[in-house]
Design a protein around this nucleic acid. Structure first.
Lengths: 213, 213
DNA sequence: TCCCACGGATTGTTCAACAATCCAAGTCAT
DNA sequence: ATGACTTGGATTGTTGAACAATCCGTGGGA
């Protein structure tokens, strides 16, 4: 009576995102299969899924390891974000249901800030941006965003200053939301563009200070 | 002495894109494994890859079938294209090497038009747009574009009026290229936006005439 | 020090088997 | 006949063991 089928990839994905397997860690088929209680073949299928999603890196005959985003990856991720997020905001309607998600995410991040729970702040921040992309109502763009957000999360895992990484953006999220509601999508899009440039520099700066390549 | 490893997914992908397996066709594991000369397990790994790429649809316990894009899929694909392509053109430099690919693609499509080889025209058209996306220098956006272009190709396969689908865009490609070189990316971006709206309507019209959902 | 062969470890793939699920055909009661 | 139910065959999901192919560190030899 085998385990949950395609959910294996999701379960493994979740554990990777939560940092259970540090970025760069090699994932041995035999070891991990036993740990997860599945066969090697089943695990390999999950590997192919996660590999396509960019969460793990697969080198032929050398196995897979948890992705360890480089600065080039971070740059590319933010490039993609600047292509998608401001445009989604510019075209989004204030009546779209995702606006409720944006509001809820901002409130969660503010609560996390007060509690100095940086992990919660980071999660809420990411939910905020995911809601922005949801404004576009595009499954394909949503899927791309889900993947690059997961990659970015891996990058964050390797930076050990979560406060500097997440705290400054709580107020910016609130401001962005109010701009969107009060002055419309076009104005908010410009603000978000600058926001993303600033965020990218913050992350790249932290990377540089940590001497990673 | 096993077959080419991860290339199996690529090989299968190629054969699907070329129309060897019609959209909607169910792909039996046992049958296809024997046809390809690989084991079921190996084939299943390739299935997971292609499924993540959106080329095949996987329904648990019911197997996989070649994706058969609906009108909703076409709409979403064009939405994603409008998010990416005009922005790539707007930010692209005329000195970027991809401009050479754009020029070459336009010339190939013109040659195909003269020879009334609609398949060649379609291929060249897609190469043209792929070159536009390449202007962005983003592996992640490029990968997304590769996937949605393949899906779109599947949609085209189900429409049996290739001339109406491809011919009108040869001259538009040439015009777009000249706008980009003469008047810059911003002007070209606007032109491309309208181009994509027109192209979407062309495809959706053909779909409707063929009574597909 | 450099180069190369060796050997253990890991991945790539196959095969055969069985469990779980689906689907269509046939059965039965109304 | 019609509709719900059961049954059986076919297909997918998963396993475990086996072997081939490749990689990599180790140690010898020049």
């Amino acid at each position: 009576m085998p385990a949950p089928e395609s959910t294996l990839a999701d379960a493994l994905r979740e554990r990777i995102i939560l940092g259970e397997f540090a970025p760069g860690t090699r994932l041995s088929e035999a070891t991990l299969a036993e740990l997860l209680g599945v066969s090697r073949n089943t695990l390999r299928e999950a590997f192919r899924v996660l590999s396509e999603q960019g969460l793990i890196e697969h080198v032929p005959h050398r196995g897979v390891s948890v992705a360890s985003p480089t600065m080039a990856d971070v740059v590319d991720i933010y490039r993609a974000r600047r292509y998608i997020e401001p445009a989604a905001l510019a075209a989004g309607s204030p009546l779209h249901p995702a606006v409720g998600d944006m509001t809820a995410a901002v409130e969660r991040s503010e609560a996390g800030l007060e509690a100095r729970d940086w992990r919660a702040v980071g999660t809420a921040n990411m939910a905020f941006h995911h809601a922005i992309v949801a404004l576009a109502d595009s499954p394909r763009l949503g899927r791309l965003y889900r993947d690059i957000a997961a990659e970015l999360r891996l990058a964050f895992l390797e930076i050990d200053s979560p406060e500097a990484l997440h705290a400054p953006f709580v107020s910016r999220n609130r401001a962005l939301l109010e701009t969107f509601l009060a002055r419309g999508g076009a104005a908010a899009a410009h603000e978000l563009h600058d926001y993303l440039v600033y965020s990218e520099q913050t992350v790249l700066g932290a990377f540089t200070r940590q001497r990673r390549g």
